[in-house]
Design a binder for these strands. Structure first.
Lengths: 168, 168
DNA sequence: TTTTATTTTCATTTTTTTTTGAAACTTCTG
DNA sequence: CAGAAGTTTCAAAAAAAAATGAAAATAAAA
């Protein structure tokens, strides 16, 4: 396999993987494209390489910037704005973890805490069972959250060492 | 909030959460419903409680059984088949981790390994950069995989202790 | 075996998500 | 300031995913 084909493969598979994780295909592809590109790319470059519309590029680059996964960069003398991906994969992973935790895990835990406040006879079996289920899920969520915090708070290459510790 | 309302809230939010993670709403809802139900439920029960069609229930229960998250149970004297959820949340988490790793992470790592086999001048900057990127992602994937294995291989309540170790 | 109850399948419909593209808007340049 | 270049927005179209429901298949009962 030649380099360009390998890049395409990577981009497409990254896109497919994305969909399985609730990330839209194009967004994942743009991210992948920028990851394996050595130069900063413009909207037009991305449109051309992935065969997608300007609006699509614009929306998804905006989201990726929001997620902190790519950056707008200004290039001396160039009028158009360019994009680059954060190339440090460990940082990328940390970003994604931090964001998804904040947007999804934390609110879920909050909800579970609310559900623990039902008014009802705690002597009743059904109530007890429900509260136990909710409580256990909340505990699991909190534990997972802490684990993610550790992974993420550790600086750059400490990411590795945090993981390595867990493997001992 | 009363118990039935709390259950409904839980079911709906679990469903919404599911979609964000690439799991279809109904499948997540059925799982949630069975989690907070003290009795085993039939297709008809599920149809009624969630207001969905028979076909839908059938497909999604099948998938949930495949994922190992719910079970078909036989009840003495009853003709219809019943479903129950695995109630041990730590086991549920372990199941999900194991399955998603197997179906998604492992194949991705395999692909990355293939992409490392490009034929091209490894002295060339572009090639080197690509290989480094792929290599780093693969390494991250492998490390994540190992971490997940540890979390999952640990028996039941050891899950907790594995996580706790990582938090030290 | 025939009837009846239950489950499964899958072509079709519905809903949801994503993409397009042209108009509106903004920013730069001469 | 006028025009050109670039970016954003968003209603409408297209595509993808999920749900329906009735017919087919299967399993149990009579």
């Amino acid at each position: 396999m030649k380099l360009p084909e390998a890049k395409t493969q990577f981009i497409n598979n990254w896109g497919a993987m994305g969909t399985q994780w609730g990330i839209n295909r194009t967004m994942a592809q743009i991210h992948a494209l920028l990851l394996v590109s050595n130069t900063a790319l413009t909207q037009d470059d991305i449109m051309e390489q992935l065969n997608i519309s300007r609006g699509n590029v614009n929306m998804n680059t905006r989201d990726l910037v929001d997620w902190g996964l790519i950056n707008r960069v200004i290039i001396q003398g160039e009028r158009k704005e360019h994009f680059t991906a954060e190339k440090d994969i460990w940082k990328v992973a940390a970003h994604i973890i931090r964001e998804r935790k904040k947007r999804e895990l934390d609110p879920m835990i909050k909800l579970l805490a609310q559900l623990e406040n039902i008014d009802g006879d705690k002597k009743e079996k059904e109530t007890r069972q429900f509260l136990e289920m909710i409580g256990t899920i909340k505990k699991l969520g909190q534990k997972a959250g802490k684990l993610l915090d550790v992974l993420v708070k550790a600086e750059e290459n400490k990411f590795t060492s945090a993981v390595m510790k867990a493997l001992k």
